[in-house]
Simulated assay, not measured.
Amino acid sequence: MNKPWILGLTGGIGSGKSAVAAHFSALGVHLVDADHAARWVVEPGRPALERIAEHFGRDVLQADGQLDRAALRQRIFQSPEERRWLESLLHPLIGEEINNYLSSAESPYAILVSPLLVESGQHRLTQRVLVVDAPEALQIQRTMHRDQVPEEQVHAILKVQASREHRLQHAHDVLVNDRDLNWLRAEVERLHNFYLTLRGGQP
């Protein structure tokens, strides 16, 4: 049995990355979500959570001992140094978690879904990168509608994420998601059939 090659799937907030990932998964592709891995590494009882509480203080924990994400987000959005400290703690742990999950894949290729694939260096774990792209105005509109958040907050998130240009420089494939869901699914199926012909992510 050949070891599956790894496709990195990324896109800015509101690009439709989750809808694309869900359809690949429905087609039987093994999927690992970096966001889920990021949640697992800060579960109560895991060393990372203890380090975070020591560094930021106990008020970043909820009463039940879980991480208070909103409180932590508030801290790191205001301070680039604190964000870098947190990233240097979490990125290696998340990378380990991701590798463990990818190594159990049984499909011909597996997908690592990560909004920060490029920024975090996780693209180095992959052999090929698919970027889900959408016009910025559409990203903002979708995110405001989905998360019920004001436009300024979406702009703040967009600033932290890689610019579209930077993300697209790393892309082997680009899926521009500016139409309806049926069209999007058909595109995913077209890409899936192409990916099944690849060895190690290369034609």
Rank of each mutant, 00 (worst) to 15 (best):
M1P: 13
L9W: 00
L9A: 08
G14R: 07
G16M: 02
G16E: 04
K17V: 15
A21G: 14
A22E: 14
S25R: 04
V29W: 00
H30P: 02
A34F: 04
H36R: 14
A37D: 05
A37F: 12
A37P: 03
R39F: 02
V41Q: 02
G45D: 06
A48H: 05
F56M: 05
D59E: 14
V60E: 06
Q62P: 00
A63C: 04
R69P: 05
A70C: 04
A71Y: 00
R73Q: 09
R75Y: 02
R75F: 00
I76F: 06
E81A: 14
R83P: 10
W85K: 07
E96Q: 13
N99C: 08
A105K: 06
P115T: 12
P115Q: 02
L116D: 06
V118S: 05
G121A: 10
Q122E: 14
E136D: 09
Q139N: 11
Q141F: 07
T143D: 03
H145L: 13
D147C: 10
Q148E: 14
Q153S: 13
S163I: 04
S163F: 11
L168H: 05
D178T: 09
E187Q: 11
V188L: 01
R190V: 01
L191Q: 09
H192Y: 03
N193G: 06
L196A: 04
R199P: 03
R199H: 13
G201L: 09
P203R: 04
